[in-house]
Design a protein around this nucleic acid. Structure first.
Length: 421
DNA sequence: TCTGGGGTCCTAGGACCC
DNA sequence: TCTGGGGTCCTAGGACCC
């Protein structure tokens, strides 16, 4: 009988900020999206104030000031490092761990010599809390979907742990568990289910799998089986090869000139190259898109994209910039206030092995040496220490993303270490 | 004035082939 | 007016996730 635990950090980004400032412990805390646009993480206190997931900052600015909400820009260097520390702890509890997201991991408990799974989970929780400072919840079930459901239900329990191994207990919890909170049921499916008067997880579990397939594709059918304790979604302890890679950003302020757009896209292409090289991958095409803001629908709208092929798969930044620039050239049209652009690639592959023929030119070699030197300089002295000229002086450009309330990178930069006084 | 970013998976429909 | 059947492959778009 399979048994999986799902552990996740409570209000994870907010909890990371609290670890480094004890004074935040009793205050509502929120963390903002890129560009300081909207709230993407809220503590229980912030939720109680009525701050919604994804709510734009300009709508809650007054509330945050009046209620003394601690507001942070997102600090992914910090969250990523805290995540690594947590997973290092999970590895000591089980050999089979799947890192599902930055703050969630599935852990196989079926093969562990554990009698009391609730006690085991409580130990996992308290160890994680003690060693990293991050509060968590743990849900256990025979399938991933039931483990997720147990985890969600555990959030309301004082112990922060719920074991749903027992079918009677599953039935009890699912009876009033909102169907929209089931893993994999989004807004569209929720609407279709409501039309069938299916509102709770228990009703969804008892639905005819064939009907589920009709209205929600095979994804929906799998959910029914998983809720019935029949596993359809396997634990993946080794991360599969990634398939695509993208760098997309909203601008700090609207872009109206071609020069700014070229610099922004060159900057994104530079990041894309860094990412590809970090993963040891390459691509033979890039798609560039740019669009105006859908929220200003009284303004002229434009939403365009173009794919440019690259003759040979590469992760060389200068080649990527050249391809991206061709797309910008073709796509650019003035008279619009662009709010966002990005560069996307799919079908990633390993970089081609350089040909070492007698009369081969050495461009290939030289390019990869330049990239390696650039990556090393940026690793040692901070991102964007060395950038291609096409990017311009990004720090002074209008498109630069806003991070006005970012906390220090406490755990990953020596010069930003916290001090004890 | 100000509204995130980066992924995966699935399906329908068109292009193309024999 | 008649004008097959059945494969495969690719892409765009929808849905969902954190």
């Amino acid at each position: 009988m399979s048994a999986l635990a799902l552990i996740d950090g409570n209000s994870f980004y907010c909890s990371c900020e609290r670890v480094f400032d004890a004074k935040l412990e009793r205050r509502p805390v929120i963390v903002l999206s890129n560009n300081d646009g909207c709230a993407v993480a809220r503590t229980a206190e912030a939720k109680a104030l009525g701050i919604k997931m994804g709510q734009p900052m300009f709508q809650i600015r007054d509330l945050c000031r009046d209620s003394k909400v601690a507001v942070f820009s997102s600090n992914y260097a910090l969250y990523g490092d805290m995540s690594r520390r947590m997973n290092a702890i999970y590895d000591t509890f089980s050999p089979d761990v799947e890192i599902y997201s930055i703050d969630e991991s599935f852990i196989d408990v079926s093969r562990l010599p554990v009698k009391d799974r609730t006690a085991w989970a409580s130990d996992l929780r308290s160890t994680t809390r003690q060693w990293t400072g991050i509060p968590t919840c743990v849900g256990i079930g025979p399938t991933k979907t039931l483990a997720k459901l147990a985890n969600k239900a555990a959030k309301k329990l004082p112990g922060g742990v719920l074991d749903l191994s027992d079918p009677a207990e599953q039935t009890h919890v699912m009876a009033d568990f909102p169907v929209g909170d089931v893993w994999g049921i989004g807004r569209a499916s929720q609407l279709k289910l409501a039309a069938l008067n299916i509102r709770f997880a228990g009703q969804l579990r008892d639905m005819d799998p064939k009907l589920a397939r009709q209205i929600m594709t095979v994804v929906g059918e799998r959910i029914i089986h998983e809720l019935n304790g029949r596993p359809c979604i396997a634990l993946e302890t080794v991360a599969p090869q990634r398939k695509g890679c993208a760098v997309t950003r909203s601008f700090g302020s609207r872009v109206t000139t071609k020069v700014e757009m070229e610099q922004a896209v060159a900057d994104y292409a530079t990041r894309l190259g860094e990412k590809l090289r970090r993963h040891g991958l390459a691509t033979d095409h890039v798609t560039v898109f740019m669009h105006t803001s859908q929220f200003n629908d009284d303004e002229p709208q434009r939403n365009v994209s173009m794919t440019v092929d690259i003759p040979e798969a590469t992760n060389d930044t200068l080649t990527l910039i050249k391809a991206a620039r061709r797309a910008v050239d073709a796509l650019w049209k003035s008279g619009y206030r662009y709010s966002k652009a990005g560069i996307i690639t799919q079908d990633l592959m390993p970089p081609p092995i350089p040909q070492r023929a007698l009369f081969d030119n050495l461009d290939h070699d030289r390019a990869s040496k330049v990239m390696a030197a650039m990556d090393e300089a940026n690793r040692r002295w901070g991102r964007a220490t060395v950038v291609p000229a096409a990017v311009g002086i990004a720090a002074r450009s209008a498109f630069t993303t806003k991070f006005e309330m970012r906390s220090p990178r406490f755990t990953t930069r020596w010069d930003e270490l916290p001090e004890c006084r």
